[in-house]
Design a protein around this nucleic acid. Structure first.
Lengths: 111, 111
DNA sequence: AGTCGTTATATTTACAAAGATATAACGCAA
DNA sequence: TTGCGTTATATCTTTGTAAATATAACGACT
């Protein structure tokens, strides 16, 4: 049987998207580079889109996920908070578990 | 904790989407109405889009999912094959199981 | 004071996805 | 043979989203 099952998960707060796969990638890029500009570039994403994504994340989460600073040495930067790191880990864990669950489900289904 | 987790699943064949939530809704509409036109209308979808969706489904599935006829009494129609019905049931079962699984996963995660 | 690289924001442009419209073909029934 | 409601298909238009462009503000450091 050549069918494959795929999925996308996301977390909502008050009906608005808080985190999805794209935002998680962005958060990880920020963690690695310390810069929103660099993270966006590494993902082939425009700065504007990256900024609007992290703005949405910060405004909808219970606690700050990313902190930013303008000016100063290096021009400024962006950092992932400990809360943000825990969100990334939780999301990726659940996502991986979901994939495994679905593979198991499709394998026990005869089509 | 006010976060909710959501998901969408789909089935691929050779890297192309075979079935997703929208296509499943369309198949169910065809099963109920016996007509592609009526099914599309009931979903607020254009006939063209509905046709291209079922064309993709039929061309990618291992066995026919929908049969159509032109002309004749009532002008023609579309019917879901037994294989198509089994696909709908399998998809909806797995989808429901996935939702339950994810709710369980998020509930045991402390954010 | 001036430079630098960044965050923050508005405005314009481009493009792809969706929708609207038109038309042909089909086969049963009156 | 004409009408009807459907499937099937092409073409044009619209629209919503993504991308590109431009500009301002900021603060450390030289």
């Amino acid at each position: 049987m050549k069918y494959k099952i795929k999925s996308r998960i996301w977390i909502e707060a008050d009906g608005n998207i808080l985190l999805g796969e794209g935002r998680i990638s962005l958060l990880k890029g920020i963690e690695e580079t310390g810069s929103l500009t660099k993270a966006a570039k590494s993902l082939g994403m425009s700065y504007k889109k990256a900024w609007s994504l992290i703005d949405a994340v910060n405004s909808r989460s219970e606690k700050p996920v990313i902190t930013t600073s303008i000016g100063g040495k290096g021009g400024g930067g962006a950092q992932l908070t400990p809360y943000g790191k825990s969100l990334v880990i939780a999301f990726e864990t659940i996502n991986k578990n979901c994939w495994e669950f679905l593979d198991e489900q499709i394998s026990k289904t005869k089509l």
